[in-house]
Design a protein around this nucleic acid. Structure first.
Lengths: 243, 243
DNA sequence: GGGCATATATTGTCGGACAATCAGACTATC
DNA sequence: GATAGTCTGATTGTCCGACAATATATGCCC
């Protein structure tokens, strides 16, 4: 084996970024705190302001710092969920994830989300779910239905009051949307089947019947796969990235 | 409603970043292609090189571009899994995820991973799994056992040959590790229980018995919760972030 | 105390500069 | 012919200094 590992000279902008990041992760800098000005940081670190700026861009894209709309001061902030999950879905899409992989993950996550949603949903969440089910039922074409279907999944996940499930589920939705609209366009009966499944899931969640909610959700997802097969989409179809 | 939404002047570095990102996502720039030099980009976009650099830092942290070790040219690259999932786990930890939330997600994902691993594992993956099980059995304290246990989960997930599951599972592992070592230290019998569960899971995966693999994995995870309760860790314990 | 004008600080962007070093070509050596 | 030295140009990492736009703080007035 090799005697020496390659020593790599970390650029200053990266060292600055990790230094600040560490302070954030270990809560020396707390969410809501304002960061020092760029010039002040440059002085403290003994580097040029340009270097600090590159480091700040890194933290900014990680979502660790941000600014309130129209402001210039940077504040420490908790990464917004949708920023994180859009990164995840982009990565997955770039790795050529297939519909089968996506479907298997939905089979794992969505029933669990439905189960816990049945246990923990609030009255308001139930209303949103019902409204979405009704909207899907009333929809006349795929372009309007798909966002509603996706929203249904997202709302059920939120109703589980489990942030990890929400964060795991969100990227799936982003990958599902473009492919789902392909299916719905080819399969006229799909919307009716979706609506009937959603009604049963919503009813189980309303009744706080966790097992039924999980079971119906699983059936619902299984039905998706059948739909894709009927629509002639291969399971190896590599899901594209929407919006 | 308001007639005009607040127009916010996107900074140039963000516009440059999204412009390049778009070309990558829509495959005009493919993975492996080299990016033009910073000066060339600055000229094309009509902005200063500093501005281009800030944009490049953004793409770099997203993992969309990178450089081969010790090189200076930037290449388009597919986001590395562990870069993405470290971002996810950091976000989750900063949002104060509890052990219960983590556990519920493991209950959803790990059995599914085990199920598909039983169907699709290769001989090599099986060997790695066996080696890890043996290493956990031979371990004498938590500091050595925890990374092995985590690695067991990760290897099973990889053996599922489902990239989405892998990507969903990885952040769970990062959050599990610090908390798990707390438990193992307090509960001497934990390692033996873990080993016996791992043996059964490994056997089921070897026999390509998907249902058993999923079932034993579920039992294994359930046992974790019991372990935490015995160790006196509350389910509302907010998981910290390791390393 | 609240509203307004003014001063100050800070950001976004620019231009130019320079050392370090990577990539490639070219040459000398065994 | 393969390997090691040398040279040259291109490119990055970092710095300095500057300036317009504007968010933030200060002070004043009522």
């Amino acid at each position: 084996m090799n005697l020496f590992e390659p020593l790599n000279h970390e650029p200053a902008y990266r060292m600055v970024a990790t230094a600040i990041e560490r302070k954030i992760v270990e809560r020396t800098l707390r969410a809501g705190d304002a960061l020092p000005a760029e010039t002040a940081l440059a002085e403290q670190f003994g580097v040029n302001r340009s270097t600090v700026r590159e480091a700040l861009r890194e933290l900014e894209t990680h979502g660790l710092v941000g600014r309130q709309a129209g402001g210039k001061k940077l504040y420490v902030t908790r990464p917004k969920r949708d920023r994180v999950s859009s990164g995840v879905s982009r990565a997955l899409a770039m790795h050529g994830v297939t519909f089968l992989e996506l479907w298997e993950s939905m089979m794992a996550i969505e029933p669990a989300a439905a189960r816990h949603a049945a246990d923990r949903r609030t009255e308001e969440e139930l209303e949103v779910i019902d409204r979405l089910v009704a909207a899907v039922a009333a929809s006349r074409d795929g372009r309007t239905a798909v966002p509603l279907v996706v929203d249904f999944f997202a709302t059920v996940a939120r109703a589980s009051h489990n942030q990890v499930l929400v964060m795991a589920q969100d990227p799936l939705n982003r990958l599902l949307a473009p492919t789902l609209s392909r299916m719905i366009d080819k399969l006229p009966q799909a919307r009716a089947r979706i609506t009937s499944a959603q009604r049963r899931i919503a009813a189980a969640i309303r009744d706080r019947n966790a097992e039924d909610a999980a079971e119906w959700m699983a059936k619902h997802i299984r039905d998706f796969k059948r739909g894709y097969e009927l629509a002639g989409i291969e399971l190896e179809y590599r899901v594209p990235l929407g919006s």
